[in-house]
Design a protein around this nucleic acid. Structure first.
Lengths: 243, 243
DNA sequence: GCAAAAGTGTTTCGTTTACACCCATGC
DNA sequence: GCATGGGTGTAAACGAAACACTTTTGC
């Protein structure tokens, strides 16, 4: 419930523009959405339908409205431009280089989020949205290449200290899947036994008792995420998921 | 060296205001400066000389100019409003609640920085700037109380994983000083022997061979910060200063 | 000589790491 | 029956934590 702004700080010109006493930047939010397909980390991009950078790929994002916070803006733009519903997003930086946008002074607040790699589609037939493997991302619009590098670095850092990885998997998942995810993001290899021991010792995994269907070999056990334990765990001091 | 903006995105009205096609927020930067006096953590505040919140204390900060990044803005406002020169600042959040500023839609990017608690003065005789112990901070202007809580939480988190603490001390310092600092920030107690062992094992402390002058009892050894080792250390994976 | 804070080493404990074999399934 | 990946236990190494006495200095 947004209340109205206490006082107007603008005047409306004859042709309906908004006039301010001092110059102001435009403000946008951009959403870096990571998805995992079981093998590699992917990022969600949309193809720009208008200039500037028409035809180039970029993050879902757009201009702030006056009745929303910057986080709400990121959510709204994401769901407008792709078929995504709500995802939890983490703010990771403001990008304010003077010439980062050819349209003028545009400053963006970047968010990142993790989801399973579900099918996406653009908002309408004209718009395209698609996943790209992180090692096959094309040159992006604006300074989005740089934003992506910083988002990925931040994701890796966060993964060491918080169990964010689960957000990238479907509701039920196997420990080998989880391990592949950690290995893909951090670009390292873990010993299977130690990985399983550590994950199970956290208590945030709940055994469903089920086995994965259609497994090519021995069917691995399906686990589910234990939300209550996760919250306790998150707030625990002196505990991290570093490997 | 800022280049000019590629294209103007505004029109100037007859009376010299700036008109834009869509509404825009105003953008500010605020600097939460922490200082340590040997006993307690302090924060630097300036007293507001104008409305809104005239007479209330707030962080140094102010409006973005069109030829600077948001980080440069934070630096500039800090040195304009206090006697501070350059300090390294870390961005920690954007605050964009719709009604956080009675003047209209104002969005701020908040930075924090650590310095020794040196004497400060306001920019001119009218302006006041002063340190406040963290447990004696008055009610602040705008949503700065909230920003302070978040800055302090972020400082504690960072302290666990990066040797930021040194930035709060003078050029040479003693290990007991450093320990008091950690204990003040984290609100815990450490065993002296273990603390010293761990700090010395990092290699980022350099023994000056000197002893503190005017010590009331046995004079403790003065150390200096080893900058090269610090940089190596910062970039090392899988190492943290957690206690 | 006593109060106050600095300096120093060792043992215990828990966590992390390294490592090898058996099991279930599909072909 | 064999290839593929899942599941399990134990020993060694390392880092963290607990712990007490001696030294220096000012009063």
């Amino acid at each position: 419930m947004n209340q109205s702004i206490a006082k107007t700080d603008y005047r409306i010109t004859e042709d309906g523009w908004y006039a301010y006493e001092y110059q102001r930047p435009a403000l946008t939010a951009d959403a870096v959405i990571f998805g995992f397909d079981g093998q590699a980390l992917n990022v969600l991009l949309v193809k720009r339908g208008i200039e500037p950078f028409k035809g180039k790929w970029a993050f879902p994002g757009g201009f702030l409205r006056m009745n929303e916070t910057i986080a709400q803006c990121a959510q709204r733009e994401l769901s407008e431009e792709t078929s995504f519903k709500e995802v939890y997003m983490e703010q990771f930086g403001v990008f304010s280089d003077v010439n980062r946008d050819p349209r003028g002074r545009v400053i963006t607040t970047a968010f990142y989020a993790l989801t399973p790699k579900i099918e996406v589609r653009g908002a309408d037939d004209a718009a395209e949205a698609d996943w790209f493997r992180l090692d096959r991302v094309p040159a992006l619009a604006f300074d989005h290449d740089r934003i992506l590098r910083i988002a990925y670095r931040r994701l890796r850092e966060d993964l060491h200290f918080r169990p964010v990885g689960f957000e990238l998997l479907p509701e039920t998942f196997t420990i080998p899947q989880l391990q592949r995810l950690y290995e893909a993001i951090l670009d390292v290899h873990f010993d299977r036994r130690n990985f399983m021991k550590k994950m199970l010792s956290t208590g945030i995994l709940k055994d469903t008792g089920l086995k994965e269907a259609n497994a090519p070999h021995r069917a691995p056990t399906l686990y589910r995420f234990n939300l209550e334990a996760y919250h306790q765990f998150k707030n625990r001091r002196n505990f991290n998921l570093e490997f």
